[in-house]
């Protein structure tokens, strides 16, 4: 089973809920639990989970490369590429790796065999153990424009019986890739106009992808928005509400896990677990 934590808006508490949920599940006797941090542009879940035995591997994507002297300037490669990553010159090809989506179409299409594929490194895949919990996270190289291949590497690193995925914010390619294959997407939001605006986008993204959604409201008492009614109208289950707590904020700033700081966080992740598993862990 895979539970993804997403939000739309950044900073709503995805990592708070994801790290707490993963730890709580492992601590409550669930076997083979993994925390997968798919927010590879700013992975920070591992900071809350003291770990050891870090294994690191480089992740590569395939990009085209020109074999000198073979290009006749026909331009087929350029017209094949839908990402504008290929520019055909008179007798050479300019390749823009940062736009390449590794589809390989230009290599297949070239009638002269002037293009081959080579590997290009885009980031690192890290794995470690935090007590009963397995951690997997990705670190995208600085300046790298596309996170999707590394997110895929994090999701596919090693299957676990119970996977908790910490997704990047937003509703772009990165997030859509991070929620793929999730049996349940838990959207963490806050009752502000910004939170609601982006929650709406995230809900529509999940519906378009055919994914089950449920919601946790964090900092539930900071504003008076009719969020509960909004969710009810759409038939989206509200699993828990976590009020703002200065003590919790202070502990999180020190790297303390949410479930070790707050009864409300413990209750929230228990509710999420119960909803996801259909039973008490």
């Amino acid at each position: 089973m895979r539970i993804a934590l997403a939000s739309g808006k950044g900073g709503t508490g995805k990592t708070l809920v994801a790290t707490s949920l993963a730890w709580w599940l492992a601590e409550h006797g669930e076997e083979d639990v993994a925390y997968l941090d798919a927010d590879v542009e700013e992975p920070n879940g591992h900071l809350f989970l003291p770990h050891e035995g870090v294994e690191s591997a480089r992740v590569q994507v395939r990009v085209p490369e020109v074999i000198p002297g073979r290009c006749v300037g026909c331009g087929v490669c350029q017209s094949t590429c839908v990402y504008n990553a290929v520019l055909a010159l008179r007798d050479d090809i300019l390749l823009f790796d940062e736009l390449c989506h590794s589809c390989g179409a230009c290599v297949l299409a070239c009638p002269e065999g002037a293009l081959v594929e080579r590997q290009r490194e885009v980031g690192s895949l890290l794995q470690a153990r935090a007590g009963p919990l397995r951690l997997v996270w990705g670190v995208l190289d600085v300046g790298e424009a596309r996170a999707v291949p590394l997110i895929s590497a994090v999701l596919d690193a090693r299957p676990a019986r119970l996977e908790v995925v910490d997704c990047p914010p937003g509703t772009s390619c990165s997030t859509m890739n991070a929620v793929r294959g999730a049996d349940l997407v838990v959207l963490v939001t806050e009752p502000t106009p910004f939170g609601l605006h982006d929650l709406d986008l995230a809900v529509r993204m999940c519906q378009a992808l055919g994914l089950q959604v449920a919601v946790v409201i964090n900092r539930s008492d900071v504003a008076e928005l009719p969020l509960e009614r909004w969710l009810e109208e759409r038939g989206i289950p509200l699993l828990a509400q976590i009020p703002f707590q200065a003590d919790l904020a202070r502990d999180l700033a020190e790297g303390v896990l949410g479930v070790d700081s707050s009864d409300e966080v413990r209750a929230a992740v228990a509710a999420v677990a119960h909803h996801a598993l259909g039973r008490a862990p």
Partner: peptide, 12 residues
């Protein structure tokens, strides 16, 4: 993505 490259191709 790649508007500049497409435009450069058009110029060519």
């Amino acid at each position: 993505h790649g508007a500049g490259i497409a435009a450069a191709a058009l110029m060519g």
